[in-house]
């Protein structure tokens, strides 16, 4: 068999899977986003209504709220995760038994089911018997009995905490990978010259980590935009609509109100946002590689 034919043949099974499980549904929902389709009334797809679903999105308060909630969630969780991950990486890059132990157990949060993480934090922040709520109350008596998940701001904060807890390990490993690839000579020379640790970190290491940190931040942004599981199991979108992220809102429109046309349009808006950020990510990866080979 000719090499070229073989090359394409090997790709066929995987490509068929991607085609059937991603590209086809995407096209299907794109078409649906221009239709009226209320599943509670119509069994079959309704009429084409042009861009009406998209126009509706522009003025509908539920969607605008979810945009706002998602923005707050993404910005805080990305900043906290990246800063923490970088700090942990600096701490963990040395050798030592405790360092190795910590690196190993860092795998656990990443391997844990996000839905379960939501459940377990909900349990720990229960004001009557949650171990964290009680613990905080014991240290700061003023906070005793705080209804953590019933306050919009605190519920959002806890949602961010669960996400940071889940993703920081992965991002730490990315930063560790980055740290391992930068040359040690400048750092050692500076250390011999008597530069302080802080100077070395901010003056020498962080500038060289800029690329890796950008990649980490963009990747985390993509994951944060997709976040869904903990909203269901931790806050249920509440109190009120204060933690209704875009993914959760689309889920409600589609599977609580069964408005398939509108849900598809919203889903495509989210996809468009993700595609722009992903394109940015891929471009950064490519320029990173160019820098590495240069």
């Amino acid at each position: 068999m000719k090499e070229r034919t073989l090359s394409y043949t090997l790709m066929v099974p995987a490509f068929l899977i991607v085609l059937a499980t991603t590209l086809y549904p995407l096209a299907y929902s794109f078409v649906t986003s221009f239709r009226e389709w209320d599943l509670t009334k119509q069994r079959r797809p309704g009429d084409f209504v042009g861009i009406e679903n998209y126009v509706h999105a522009a003025s509908e308060s539920g969607f605008q709220n979810s945009l706002w909630v998602t923005t707050i969630f993404v910005v805080t969780s990305v900043i906290v995760t990246v800063v923490l991950a970088m700090s942990l990486a600096l701490l963990l890059r040395r050798e030592g038994r405790l360092h190795t132990f910590t690196r190993i157990i860092l795998i656990l949060p990443f391997a844990m089911s996000p839905a379960l993480i939501g459940v377990s934090y909900r349990f720990m922040f229960n004001p009557e018997f949650g171990v964290l709520a009680k613990g905080i109350g014991a240290i700061f008596p003023a906070l005793e009995g705080t209804p953590w998940l019933a306050s919009p701001d605190l519920a959002m904060a806890i949602l961010v905490i669960t996400d940071v807890w889940h993703w920081t390990p992965y991002m730490t490993f990315m930063c560790l990978g980055g740290l391992a690839s930068i040359p040690r000579e400048t750092e050692e020379a500076a250390r011999i010259d008597g530069a302080s640790n802080l100077r070395i970190i901010f003056g020498i290491i962080l500038p060289q980590m800029k690329g890796v940190l950008m990649v980490t931040a963009v990747l985390k942004t993509i994951f944060a935009l997709k976040m869904f599981d903990q909203v269901v199991t931790l806050t249920g979108g509440g109190p009120g609509t204060s933690t209704e992220t875009m993914a959760f809102f689309i889920f409600n429109v589609g599977f609580k109100w069964f408005d398939m046309g509108y849900a598809s349009a919203l889903a495509w808006i989210l996809t468009a946002i993700m595609m722009i950020i992903s394109a940015w990510y891929v471009r950064m990866l490519l320029s990173e590689r160019k820098m590495a080979t240069a």
């Binding site: 935009l225 993914a247 849900a263």
Partner: peptide, 13 residues
């Protein structure tokens, strides 16, 4: 790039 598509988009269709 399909990896970056939110799951909620795929699950509707």
């Amino acid at each position: 790039s399909t990896q970056f598509i939110p799951a909620v988009v795929i699950v509707l269709p």
